[in-house]
Amino acid sequence: MNREVYKFLVLVAIVLLCPLAVHEGYILNVLVFVGIHTMLALALNLLLGYAGQISLGQAGFFGLGAYISGILTATHGVNPWLAMGEGAVVVTLLAFLIGFPILKLKGHYLAMATLGLGIIIYIVFNEAVDQTGGPSGLSGIPNLSLGGIIFDNDLKNYYLIWTFVLLSMGLALNLVHSRIGRALRAIHDSEVAARVMGVNARLLKVQIFALSAGLSAVAGSLYAHTMTFVAPASFGFNFSVELVTMVIIGGLASIYGSLLGAALLTLLPELLRAFQDYDIIVYGLLLIIMTMYMPGGLVKGVPALFSAIRSRLKRKPSAHA
């Protein structure tokens, strides 16, 4: 348990000190995106990695959070924090209600149903022009502010977003090491046995689905208030797939893996500007290769790879002897 605390404190220190090393607004801005993506990957990982239930509609919940925040503040002048809270509550409740029928489905059916849900939400963003501004988007969303500090530049946004990231990672770490986390992993391993032990698998899956949606909505609100502009294109099916890719690459059922996956998939396109839109080829290849050769993601796969290489190196001389 203590090791967990140390690991987390090291992360906190890195996050705090990072801006000392990088000052350029551009990089800080990328790091803001890493943060938002980490929250989203984390939310999905609770569902996909721990409970073993896929969702291909996460971008929809992310978008709902962003649009609820955006519409309430830009159109109706609500306080941004209040709008964020409302978005989180509304999306959590919505996911809770729809979770009951949707999580009855398993495997491929669940994937298709969540995908359908995500696309319906996306179509609404495009078509409810009066509220959302349609395909051209919604602008004029105010920044968040706290006691006179307005979060309007890259550095401030960096600290704002990463406070939320660390908070949600901390909460998630606690959750997965608790009775709830145990029950989730148990459902993943054997749902029948978990039920026989008295775990209400269905309710728990719905709860975690709702939590995951709510956390995505908070990330959406943060996105809206830092960008001050939202458009449907950010919340389509492709982004849902990108989130799944982050989780798979980082590592299923690993909180730190979510951070790793989000960071890699956010930084990679920035580093490889030449890819432009062809990054989907890279995503596709990554998904296939990781599923085939490293189903535990980088967090588990890389140490396993190292120990495999090491044991092979050790064995070779003895085989000759």
């Binding site: 009775r179 145990r182 029950a183 992993r185 148990a186 993943h188 391993d189 054997s190 029948v192 046995a193 978990a194 032990m197 008295g198 775990v199 059922a253």
Partner: peptide, 21 residues
């Protein structure tokens, strides 16, 4: 035997105590 393969032995038994928490 339907064990929870990714949980430790202790955690498996702790899961049995789920209804008592």
């Amino acid at each position: 035997i339907e064990l929870f393969g990714t949980l430790t032995v202790l955690e498996n038994v702790m899961l049995g105590l789920h209804t008592q928490s």
